[in-house]
Amino acid sequence: MVEAWYMDDSAEDQRKPHRLDPGRPVSLEQLQQLGVFYWKLDADKYENDPELEKIRKEKNYCWMDIITICKDKLPNYEEKIKMFYEEHLHLDDEIRYILDGSGYFDVRDKEDKWIRIFMEKGDMITLPAGIYHRFTLDETVQNL
Results as ranks from 00 to 15, higher is better:
40 K>A: 14
21 D>C: 07
108 R>T: 07
57 K>H: 09
77 Y>E: 01
11 A>P: 08
123 D>Y: 00
123 D>K: 02
82 K>A: 11
86 E>D: 10
57 K>Y: 05
110 K>D: 15
36 V>Q: 07
31 L>M: 14
34 L>M: 15
36 V>N: 05
3 E>S: 11
73 K>V: 02
137 L>I: 10
33 Q>A: 14
84 F>I: 05
120 E>A: 13
117 I>S: 07
75 P>C: 02
25 P>V: 02
62 C>M: 06
115 I>L: 06
46 Y>F: 15
40 K>P: 02
139 E>S: 12
79 E>A: 09
2 V>K: 08
34 L>S: 08
71 K>Y: 04
121 K>N: 07
21 D>W: 00
59 K>T: 07
90 H>F: 08
51 E>V: 14
143 N>L: 11
17 P>I: 13
142 Q>K: 13
26 V>W: 10
141 V>G: 02
9 D>K: 13
64 M>L: 10
122 G>P: 05
104 Y>I: 01
103 G>S: 07
41 L>G: 02
94 E>L: 12
66 I>W: 05
131 I>W: 06
114 W>P: 00
109 D>V: 05
51 E>I: 10
3 E>N: 05
49 D>T: 08
96 R>Q: 02
62 C>F: 10
59 K>A: 09
4 A>H: 09
15 R>W: 00
87 E>L: 05
